[in-house]
Structure formats: structure tokens, C-alpha cells
Write a protein that binds this DNA or RNA. Structure first.
Ligand SMILES: [Mn+2]
Ligand SMILES: [Mn+2]
Ligand SMILES: [Zn+2]
Ligand SMILES: [Zn+2]
Lengths: 155, 155
DNA sequence: ACTTCTATTGTAAGCATTTGCAACAGCAGA
DNA sequence: TCTGCTGTTGCAAATGCTTACAATAGAAGT
């Protein structure tokens, strides 16, 4: 589907002073090896290091930010300690996350069709809605009228 | 508009084992003193400490999370280093943030009307969309066909 | 008032992520 | 192939936020 060298060439075309380093190549290879996955920075670092290469995690953080700036990866806080990064490819998907039970519901990009249209037409704003997390309460956890309404009391 | 003691009483009603501490009272007073503002945790801590009281910042972080769990405050990453917290009161507002020039455009809650409806009807999910930041490209920064398309290259 | 129970706090340490800086390494040009 | 420029890296330190734990203090009951 997506080819490493095409991706790298495209990134260079868009910024000719950018350099194709071994580290950038390795990070992209790791992401491409699980093209649908949610990857933490630590995941990516470990995937690369598993191949025997040494690579500092701060470098991976920098490379992920760089790829994000070019729209190649998305960064999402799913509420699990560390942010997850995904390759941006094909139809985007998103997640609904229940604050009460932790359930993660996958939703496809059509839920944002109207919001996208409004932002484009009324605000001439081009939003980057590539992999969103929306927090709230799922059906199972819907509070009944006589019940406590707080979610996940952080004591 | 919103009264400190009413708020505290309501929080206790919803969780009778919660305790009304001096620290919680002080944090809420600080937030109520600038009811429309975006406050970082550090802001709140300083506002309280300016009154001569000693209060640890980790306690403020905990109290803000606690208030958020009850829907009393929202927490938002506006891309400025630290998250900002707002009292949830009245009509919500949101922000569009340009990745290219940093412009922050205020938008009102109506942009989410359709998304809210879809989530409620099709997914029976009750979203907490209290103070969102949507990143993207503003009108001024819209990339022309022959131009570089990357945003904010993180060197 | 006093006791008891346990939620909350302060402190210090930990975790996730960013950043300053000097060494390194792409890559364009000679 | 060598040189020079400067973008990138590794390292260590800093920043924003969270958490374990022992001490403190709400508040309910007496
Ligand atoms: Mn984050
Ligand atoms: Mn996902
Ligand atoms: Zn749920
Ligand atoms: Zn702009």
C-alpha cells in the first residue's frame, strides 16, 4: 500500500533541506510493519531496538513529531498514560471512550462529516481530524435518574 | 451565577464520602474568581498561594481531576505546554488552532450539534464535549497548490 | 468534646515528553 | 572523493503531570 522509499522521497520533496537518516528510516519501517496499529513512542523505540540498532527514545519522539507535522502520523491521547501514534493512511477511524467503564468504541470518520463541512464553509478552517478520541459515557453506563452521576472519582 | 457553597454541597450530595477541605474550597474560589478564564494548574496554585496559604501543586492537580470527574471543570490541551482548566458553566465554547501560524479562533458550541446528535442516536454515547481544541490550518495559512504543505516543521 | 474511620494532603519519587547542547552525519558542491 | 554547511542525533537535564506512602484532618457517631 504505502512504500517506505516513496514516503521518504515525498517528505524530501516537501522540504528539500530535510535529511533521510537511518533513524527516520527505521522509525518509518517500524510503523509500516504494523500499518493499522496504535503505537506508543516506547513501542516504536522497542521495535527498532529489537533489530539490534541503538536509537534514543528522544530521537523517536522528535521523529514522530516531525512525521506528524507533515501529516504522515497522527497523535492521540486515548487516556492510557502515553499518547499513541498511527500512520495516516486510508479512511480515518476514531474512538469513543467511556469514562465510567473504560470501554473503547471504534467509530468511522463519517461522524465528523458535518463538523468538517461547517469548519470548511463557515470558518474556512481545514481541520486535522485524523484519529480523535471522544470521552463520555457509553450506553451501559448511562446514569439513571436516581443514581450518582460522577464518573471515575479520582479519590 | 455559580455559588461556591452550592457547588460544594452539590459535590457532597453526589458523593457523601467526599470531604470539603480547605484546599478544595480554595481551588474552587480561585476558579470562580475568573469564571471565564483558561487556567493552568500552575495559575490556580499561584492564585491560591498569593493569598498566603500554602498548597502543594500536586494537590491542585488532584483537585482539578476530581472536579473534572464531576463535570465541574474541563481540561483542554491548547498546544501551549500545559493543559488549561475551565469551569463548566453556561454555553460551552471551543477553539480552532492553526498549526501554521498559531492563531486561536473561538467557536461556539453549535459546530458540534450534529456530532452530538449522531453520537447520541447512533451510538447511544453521551459525549463530554465541553471545551475542545481542533488543530488544523486557518484561512490565511491555506497552502496554495505550488507551495510547501508542511506545518511547523519540528526541525 | 472525644473517638474513630478513612478521605485527603504534603512530600518525594516516578513517568511521559521536551529541550539545550556538543558531536555527528547527510548531502550539495567542488 | 573530499569539504563544508547545517540538519539531526544522543545525552543529560528540565518540564508537566501522576502516584506511593505516611501523616493529617473532615465528619459521623458517641
Ligand atoms: Mn498529551
Ligand atoms: Mn485507533
Ligand atoms: Zn461504559
Ligand atoms: Zn493560520
Amino acid at each position: 500500500m504505502i512504500d517506505l522509499d516513496t514516503l521518504l522521497a515525498d517528505l524530501r520533496r516537501r522540504n528539500p533541506s530535510a535529511r533521510i537518516t537511518a533513524q527516520r528510516r527505521l522509525v518509518l519501517e517500524a510503523l509500516l510493519s504494523d500499518i493499522k496499529g496504535h503505537h506508543t513512542c516506547e513501542d516504536v523505540t522497542r521495535m527498532v531496538q529489537a533489530r539490534g540498532v541503538t536509537l534514543d527514545q528522544s530521537t523517536v519522539y522528535r521523529i514522530l513529531q516531525w512525521l506528524k507535522a507533515y501529516g504522515v502520523v497522527s497523535q492521540t491521547d486515548l487516556g492510557m498514560g502515553s499518547d499513541v501514534y498511527c500512520l495516516v493512511a486510508g479512511e480515518p477511524h476514531h474512538h469513543l471512550i467511556c469514562l465510567a467503564c473504560g470501554a473503547i468504541i471504534d467509530v468511522d470518520d463519517t461522524i465528523f462529516a458535518s463538523l468538517r463541512r461547517t469548519l470548511k464553509l463557515a470558518y474556512r478552517f481545514d481541520p486535522r481530524i485524523e484519529h480523535f478520541a471522544i470521552f463520555g459515557t457509553c450506553e451501559k453506563c448511562k446514569p439513571h435518574d436516581d443514581e450518582d452521576e460522577h464518573l471515575n472519582d479520582m479519590s
